[in-house]
């Protein structure tokens, strides 16, 4: 199945669920499919492994970027780039908003409520069952409710991002799909897509999945792996 997302796509979820890597990969993937793509970093929570670490790659790939202003980037303060509300009012063909984790991370969206009001937005909750606090279906539903409460927006679907980084096995992708399917059934919301680490892509039979599968290459790496 072809992955084809358009309009405003908000990536939210539990802290450390893989939102930023997904946002970067989705931006590159969609740009390569010929779309006009903009990626905005709305993560006000995480001090390390931020979108700007992939800035050169994204710019080279032709992805428009909205990053926190450089002078504030290491300030350890919640600083939102003021151009973001304008971007939401006049979105690109695909505008990806990468939001910080958990309730505090998603609360940034309520600040942008005026700009978002009346817009048709896709809000996707990222789920990695190998992460703490999202190991059970109930915990994922609790997180869904918390994200909605904090963002004042409704989640419209899920992204299955089952992985244990370099130690992910093909069977983990299948287990991860089964898990996110249960969450999807319980919530009554669709799976937008699942991810698969690039190195496993040849080992997976994608026809068994009734949703798109996006290959993910890690871009936010520690210095000994760059």
């Amino acid at each position: 199945m072809e992955l084809n997302l358009n309009g405003i796509v908000i990536i939210c979820g539990t802290y450390g669920s893989g939102k930023t890597e997904i946002a970067i990969n989705l931006a590159m993937y969609s740009k390569q499919s010929g779309k006009d793509v903009c990626l905005a970093d709305l993560d006000l929570i995480n001090p390390y492994f931020r979108t700007q670490e992939a800035e050169a790659l994204l710019k080279k790939g032709g992805v428009a970027l909205v990053l926190p202003s450089e002078r504030y980037i290491q300030s350890d303060l919640f600083v939102l780039n003021p151009t973001i509300s304008g971007l939401i009012r006049n979105p690109r063909e695909l505008t990806i908003l990468d939001v910080g984790g958990d309730k505090p991370g998603a609360s940034v969206l309520s600040v942008l409520a005026d700009a978002i009001a009346g817009k048709d937005v896709t809000m996707l909750q990222v789920i990695n069952p190998f992460r703490p606090f999202t190991e059970t279906v109930e915990a994922c539903i609790d997180m869904l409710n918390a994200l909605q409460e904090s963002s004042k927006l409704m989640v419209t679907g899920f992204i299955g991002n089952a992985n244990i980084m370099d130690e992910t096995l093909a069977e983990d992708i299948h287990k991860g799909y089964d898990f996110v399917k249960q969450v999807s059934d319980k919530a009554g919301l669709p799976i937008a897509f699942i991810t698969c680490p690039l190195q496993l892509f040849s080992e997976i039979n994608f026809e068994v999945f009734p949703c798109p599968v996006m290959p993910v290459k890690r871009h936010l790496l520690p210095p000994w792996k760059k």
Binding site: N128, P132, I164, M165, E167
Partner: peptide, 14 residues
């Protein structure tokens, strides 16, 4: 089995 954790979380859990 293994889980994927941030160092800080893992220190707390340990």
């Amino acid at each position: 089995g293994k889980v994927l954790m941030k160092g800080n979380e893992a220190i707390g859990e340990a």
